[in-house]
């Protein structure tokens, strides 16, 4: 299969359409615009709906509507837009509506800037919106994964009836890499719970309101059990040279790419370094980290933030060995050399 040099953002949208996505509702924001623009270009040609909403608030609620209607659908944004969508994501989770949300993260807080950061981890992975809910979070590290993990996200979102988030930094969205599209084109299919305005679905109800405490607790417990199933079945990560690693780096997205360079630099100097790259951020590969804590002397977490995922690494490691952190933010990314020196400052 020939490859195509393509931006991560555009690869994501092509993967989505191959997965059967036929609805996109979004609002322009850098650095996610190529997703929205690809949706505007391709979706009308495949019988889908593209609509530029009046705000991210409207966009996520349009996703709520399209998902209620049984359509595979998505939106894409960046930090400030995801903040606005938090309410809608909570409703989607509460109403058990599948959809895919791409967050191509930029610098915050506030208006921040449009350069890459990984500072949306808390708001995306920990919830962001109100109530006891989680979203499935996948973190691509290359353009190929932008397509492949988005395709997977649609399947998992449907399987678990949950919103799934593609959490990628601006680098992964903006860069071009060769992508091989081996994904089979999926036909849109109406789930039996959908409300589509026909006799057979007339008794269907999409709702997240449970007025009685007992009813709501039952609903929340059901969601909780679903998240536990997701943790059991869907946790994904990549081990890179961790077999004998004494220093285990942990990073996702662009950080993992830089950290692979660092691992190579260390290996070239006979330092046994490895990388654990979480592919799902929820569920988080805590068990694998705990296992590695038995062999590693220290963990070294790198993020384009002041430290967000590192909290989950520390929770997973449970104090078995030191967990160091190095982060850059504001749109700066650490070079491999910089991280290399930083590690030696700690060792």
């Amino acid at each position: 299969m020939p490859k195509q040099l393509i931006k991560g953002n555009e690869a994501l949208m092509k993967g989505a359409i191959l997965a059967g996505c036929r609805g996109f509702y979004g609002y322009p924001i850098t650095p996610a615009n190529e997703i929205t623009e690809a949706a505007a270009y391709y979706l009308p040609q495949v019988g889908g709906t593209f609509l530029q909403a009046e705000s991210e608030v409207a966009a996520i609620n349009m996703v709520y509507g399209a998902s209620s209607a049984g359509v595979r659908c998505m939106t894409a944004s960046s930090g400030p837009g995801i903040s606005l969508m938090a309410e809608g994501i909570s409703y989607l989770a509460g109403s058990e509506l599948p959809c895919v949300i791409a967050d191509i993260t930029r610098g915050g807080p506030g208006l921040g800037n449009i350069a890459p950061e990984q500072s949306d981890y808390f708001q995306v992975v920990k919830g962001g919106g109100h109530g006891c809910y989680r979203t499935l979070v996948l973190a691509p590290a290359c353009a190929q994964e932008m397509a492949d993990l988005t395709y997977l996200a649609f399947d998992l979102a449907d399987q678990y009836r949950t919103p799934a988030v593609i959490l990628a930094d601006g680098f992964i969205g903006q860069m071009m890499e060769p992508v091989e599209f081996t994904l089979a084109a999926r036909a849109p299919r109406l789930p039996e719970w959908a409300v589509d305005g026909t006799a057979s679905t007339r008794r269907n109800l999409i709702s997240s309101i449970y007025l009685q405490p007992d009813d709501l607790e039952k609903h929340i417990r059901m969601l909780e059990a679903k998240y536990a199933r997701m943790a059991h079945n869907e946790t994904r990560w990549e081990n890179y040279k961790t077999d004998d690693a004494e220093i285990v780096f942990v990073g996702y997205g662009i950080s993992s790419r830089i950290l692979k360079s660092v691992v190579e630099m260390m290996r070239a100097r006979d330092i046994r370094a490895g990388l654990l790259r979480p592919i799902t951020l929820f569920p988080f590969p805590s068990d694998e980290l705990r296992r590695l804590a038995g062999q590693a002397e220290r963990f070294f977490v790198v993020e384009l933030s002041t430290g967000q995922m590192v909290e989950d690494v520390r929770l997973a490691v449970e104090g078995r060995c030191p967990v160091e952190f190095y982060g850059r933010c504001g749109g700066n990314a650490p070079s491999a050399e910089e991280i290399f020196e930083e590690v030696f400052a700690h060792v």
Partner: peptide, 13 residues
């Protein structure tokens, strides 16, 4: 067929 939605968002849905 019924869909219950967030405050104010019915037109978007």
């Amino acid at each position: 067929g019924n869909v219950q939605v967030a405050h104010g968002r019915a037109p978007a849905v």
